[in-house]
Amino acid sequence: MVVIRPARPRELPALLEFPDDAERNAATRAYLGELLAAGCTRPEWCLVAEDGGGAPVGSAVLWTLPGQEVPYAVVLFEAPGSAEVAAALLESAAATARSLGADELEHVVDAPAQAPQFQRDPERRAELLRSAGFRVIRDGRRFRWAAGAELPPVDARLDFRSLDRLGPAPFLALLAELLGETADARLAADVVRYGARQAAERLFEETAELRHEPHWWEIGYDGDGTPAVISLPAENPSVAVIGFVGVAPAHRGKGYAAAAVVRGTRLLAANGAREVRGDCDAANAAMAKAFTRAGYRNFAERLEFSRPL
């Protein structure tokens, strides 16, 4: 019999530890400690599965952005060797998130396994998620830039103007235009569900929940005076990110996505970032090329899952 319960104080932040896996244990312990300190999770959101003898055999932690009251993702999901434990944990996580006001729950699976979550056996994890009602909403690629890596110069063809100068209206208009022809499966689904304008508003608002300064967010204008590319760099609770880059359909094929990545990276580095990460859809070859041209390295693949509640 599997019992799912909140973690006990003495179990935090270690939660579930693995014998003979000191690297994983230390990294995940530090990660959960950071999440608790930042307000991305709470002790009652940290779930432990125990077997009939009371031994811990699995874990799942609900996650949200700092300051938010509603969780929308699961992290540190562990159910080694047991589909029954996995199903019970995911169902309990979904029920808890629903009771707190969530209408969907997400989880990502990265390969290869790496700190801080060490998601080993990604194929099995994906199958467990599918069995629990999750579906893939994006097949992604992850990119990383580290301080010391060379950055190309800022593209002189573009005149960058910031949010604090322009206000949000031009940003929303450009987002709505470019989302109408996006190669990103997740964003395309939002356009189908909400329409281009509302999808643009949702993207803008969700990215704005990450820490950023108004002068970081910019639109790059082409020499003909038209808006060509949008750049929304930011910082999530653990790392600086290229929150979003998008190019207007009329200006694609000019290398402007790479220019925006370079621009955003320089802004974040000037603010102290020693590492910057960015994701894109596997089908978005132009964005993957932009990261590579900007000096980023593809370090992982990421499947993004979602389950309606």
Rank of each mutant, 00 (worst) to 15 (best):
R29L: 04
V136N: 06
A22P: 11
A37S: 12
R142F: 01
G39I: 09
E235I: 03
R138C: 07
L166W: 01
K254C: 13
G253F: 05
S99H: 08
W217Y: 07
G220I: 03
A22L: 13
R263Y: 00
T28D: 09
E213C: 00
R125S: 04
R266V: 08
R157Y: 09
W217E: 12
R144L: 05
A300T: 01
D155H: 12
Y296A: 10
G223T: 14
S92H: 08
D164K: 08
R263D: 00
A7E: 03
T226A: 14
A250Y: 08
V48H: 01
A97V: 02
R5C: 11
G295K: 00
R144C: 10
R142N: 06
I4Y: 04
A87K: 14
T28Q: 13
D51L: 07
W145F: 00
L232V: 03
L35G: 04
F244R: 00
Y256L: 06
E235P: 01
A208F: 08
A200L: 02
G58Q: 07
W63A: 02
G133I: 12
P66G: 06
E106I: 01
E206A: 07
P71D: 03
F291V: 02
R157A: 10
D224T: 13
G54L: 11
V245P: 01
W145A: 15
R211C: 02
A260V: 02
R5M: 11
A73D: 09
A111L: 07
G52L: 11
A176M: 04
V245F: 00
V75N: 05
G39T: 10
L175G: 01
V70C: 03
A60G: 00
G101I: 11
P168S: 15
L89V: 04
A200M: 03
S92I: 03
P168E: 13
P308N: 08
A149P: 04
A269G: 15
A113W: 07
V192N: 10
Y31N: 14
H107D: 03
P71Y: 06
R193E: 10
R274E: 15
E177P: 05
T226K: 15
A240F: 01
C280F: 01
S162H: 06
L174P: 04
A169D: 15
A111W: 12
E206C: 02
R302N: 07
A37T: 12
A22G: 07
R165K: 10
E301P: 07
V247I: 04
Y296M: 02
R202I: 12
